[in-house]
Simulated assay, not measured.
Amino acid sequence: MKTLTEDQKKYLMDSIREIPDFPKPGILFKDITTLLNNSEAFNLLMEHLTARYQEKNLDFVAGIESRGFIFGAALAAKLGVGFVPIRKKGKLPGTTIGEKYALEYGVDEVEIHIDAFRGREGARVLLIDDLIATGGTAEAAAKLIRDAKGECVEACFLIDLTFLGGKEKLKPLTSFYSVLEVV
């Protein structure tokens, strides 16, 4: 199932709990743990993503810490490709490369192992995370894939908070796909 029906999208969205005022007042947090503990919803999502990416000739799936690890590792296993974690600075052992990105009040950094793609220059990589908001972390992750000599084939998100415009930061770097949109 390469495309989802509106009913299937609604089912997935309804399986995601909303938590008001988390992590701070005014934020309506999309809690994916309720999708994860619903095997029917999680299987629907993974079947959809597997169908979408099975013919893209991927070499790796790269997931952004931490919820991207859940979707990325599961999808990589289904596709029979390697999984690569993209983590906050200082969390990976071994030699890494990093990319800084702007936060509302400051700067943060994500890292990838310099040999994440096992020396395969031009490795075809799917970037995945649960949600894209302003796009800073996703942009940094896509740049890391490039800097590690991979090709970011697409950036995939379960949810796009479209009103925050994050996908615009990815347009110069890769194509973009979201399963669900919150406008």
Rank of each mutant, 00 (worst) to 15 (best):
T3F: 13
L4S: 05
T5A: 09
D7K: 10
K10D: 13
L12F: 05
M13K: 14
D21C: 06
P23I: 02
K30S: 10
D31F: 06
T33F: 04
T33W: 00
T33E: 06
L35P: 05
L36D: 02
N38C: 09
L44Q: 01
L45Y: 01
L49A: 07
L49S: 03
Y53I: 02
K56C: 13
N57R: 13
N57H: 15
F60M: 11
V61I: 11
A62K: 09
I64E: 02
I64R: 00
I64P: 11
L75W: 13
A77W: 11
G82N: 12
F83K: 07
K88C: 09
G90A: 04
K91P: 14
P93W: 12
E99Y: 06
E99Q: 13
Y105S: 09
G106K: 03
E109T: 11
H113L: 10
F117W: 03
R124H: 14
L127V: 06
D130C: 06
I132L: 04
G135I: 01
T137L: 00
T137Y: 00
E139H: 08
E139M: 10
A140F: 03
A142C: 12
A142F: 06
R146Y: 09
K149P: 13
K149R: 14
C152Q: 05
C152S: 07
E154L: 02
A155S: 13
L158K: 01
L164T: 10
T174Y: 02
S175L: 04
F176S: 10
E181C: 13
